[in-house]
Write a protein that binds this DNA or RNA. Structure first.
Lengths: 203, 203
DNA sequence: CGAGTGATTGACTTAGATCAATGACCGTGG
DNA sequence: CCACGGTCATTGATCTAAGTCAATCACTCG
């Protein structure tokens, strides 16, 4: 329970030791486009919104980061931020200073490898989630999620959060998800016990 | 025009020199789940489909990689592949051997940094594309794309491919995209000249 | 014991998917 | 040099799955 040992366990102790926490009020900015980059962040609690605003005032959300998510990794390799980050709620973030990270990349192959590994896995799961969004039917989207997240037995899925969270992840309204799951259960395709779903007959 | 200098220009010469090309017929497998990992790939031409098949035969597409895309970066950090990769068309891929990459990560900080930078940027754009898919209205999705991809003047967007390609990227049917663009043009929000779109009035 | 949130189901509406047809282009082989 | 097959771009008509609005019940937390 040493304080230096909190947070991202995929970073070496020296980098974690250099981390700095910061508390944000809702609406408070973490950084602005054009500002000098100081490192990348991990959201400890609350949610932070990354927004790109073009010169004519149009806004576009690039990412909404919640507890456990990281943000602005790419800023490590850029002198200035390319978007704004604003707390959407009361929030706590942890800054991993650019200098510490880059030094580790240079001098500590193990950390470099771990960092690259994490990014590569992130790329993989993001690509998969994006691919899922290409599926139009709600039911097939749910199937995609379930088959990919099935446990070792290839049939049991334990949801990490609420059904509403899952609905958001799938890009469905919660109502649509409830109905889809209800139909799948009614037709014997799945079995449900609270937050645990079991896949039944194949295809 | 040296052959060792083809392909991913973000990799050091030594890694690129170790690359191996392979030609695939449609339906031919590049690797299988459980197989020993040999490295990650770049698609030179054609398209390759990554598919996860669970034990009961259900399939789920994880990624569809086309010319210029890379795949299986995460396999660098894993002893075995976790999905199948199958050519969807006649295709040519380039293998960057695991050993060469990992050696570079260990001994060549510049390459490690470049590799991490590429992954970080990929994570960023994937998150943005995923965020875009959270937007329900076709029109707002198009707006999101346009404001984020506007050029230096904050108004001009040059499409990288055809409108059909864009439609796929946005998760819309091409018909829906044509109609949406037509409406936006009719209402003066954009101007269009072939593959170039200009944003007009703000908000 | 209220207030807040998740889970669920019903009724209604609509944006976008589907199906279909047409014109513009473009490369290519005879 | 041109006809033909292929793809992109575009527009119309129709249909439906999913979004939206709304109400209820179960739970948990101060």
């Amino acid at each position: 329970m040493k304080s230096a040992e909190k947070g991202a366990d995929w970073l070496s102790g020296s980098v974690r030791a250099a981390a700095v926490e910061r508390r944000l009020k809702p609406g408070q900015a973490l950084f602005h486009a054009g500002g000098k980059t100081s490192g990348f962040y991990e959201v400890v609690s609350g949610t932070v919104r990354m927004v790109r605003v073009d010169r004519s005032g149009r806004e576009a959300v690039l990412q909404v980061a919640s507890a456990g998510d990281t943000l602005a990794e790419a800023s490590l390799f850029s002198p200035a931020y390319h978007c704004d980050a604003v707390a959407a709620t009361e929030a706590v973030v942890r800054l991993y200073p650019k200098s510490a990270l880059l030094a580790a990349l240079e001098h500590d192959p193990a950390t470099a490898k771990a960092f690259a590994a994490r990014l590569a896995r992130q790329v993989m799961t993001l690509r998969t989630r994006l691919e899922r969004r290409n599926i139009h039917s709600a039911r097939d989207r749910v199937r995609h999620y379930l088959t990919i997240n099935a446990g070792a037995d290839g049939a049991t899925v334990v949801l990490p959060g609420t059904l509403k969270d899952l609905a958001a992840d799938l890009g469905l309204t919660h109502e649509a998800l409830y109905r889809t799951l209800a139909r799948m259960a009614a037709e014997g395709e799945i079995t449900r016990a609270g937050t645990v779903i079991k896949l039944k007959r194949a295809g």
